[in-house]
Simulated scan of single mutants.
Amino acid sequence: MRIEHAKVAGLFIDLQEEHRHDERYLVEGYGTVLRNAARLQAAARRNGIPVFHCAYIVDLADHARPFHPTGPDGRSAFSDKDDPLTAICPEVAPRASERLLVKNEASAFGKSPLIAELRERGVEWLVVAGVWTEACVDATVKDAINLGLHVLLVKDACGSGGLAMHQTGILNLANRLYGGAVVDTQAACALMDGDTVEAWQIEGSVPLRFTFENAAEIYGQL
Rank of each mutant, 00 (worst) to 15 (best):
R2Y: 09
R2L: 11
H5W: 00
A9C: 07
A9Q: 09
G10D: 01
I13Y: 06
Q16E: 14
E17Q: 15
H19S: 07
E23F: 10
R24Y: 11
L26V: 10
L26Q: 12
V27M: 07
E28F: 09
G29P: 02
Y30S: 02
Y30K: 01
T32Y: 12
A38S: 07
A43L: 02
R45E: 07
F52K: 04
H53M: 07
C54H: 13
A55Q: 13
Y56S: 12
V58N: 10
L60C: 07
P66K: 15
H68Y: 15
H68L: 14
P69Q: 09
G74H: 09
S76A: 15
S76F: 04
D82S: 14
D83C: 12
D83P: 04
A87H: 07
I88N: 05
I88W: 04
P90H: 14
A93E: 11
A96I: 09
E98D: 08
E98R: 08
L100W: 08
L101W: 02
V102Y: 06
K103I: 05
K103L: 06
S107Q: 05
S107V: 05
S107E: 03
A108K: 02
A108R: 04
F109W: 12
L114C: 06
I115H: 15
A116F: 13
E117Y: 04
G122H: 06
E124D: 13
E124N: 11
L126H: 02
V128L: 02
V128Y: 01
G130P: 01
T133M: 00
T133R: 02
E134L: 10
C136Q: 07
A144P: 01
I145S: 05
G148Q: 10
G148Y: 08
L153E: 00
L153K: 00
K155R: 12
D156F: 11
D156M: 04
A157T: 08
C158R: 08
C158N: 11
G162Y: 04
M165Q: 14
L171I: 04
N172C: 10
V182E: 05
V183G: 05
Q186A: 14
A187D: 07
A188V: 06
D193H: 12
V197F: 11
E198Y: 13
A199N: 08
I202C: 10
V206P: 05
L208T: 01
T211S: 15
E213T: 09
E213R: 12
A215V: 00
E217K: 03
E217H: 08
I218Q: 14
I218F: 10
Y219C: 03
Q221G: 10
L222T: 01
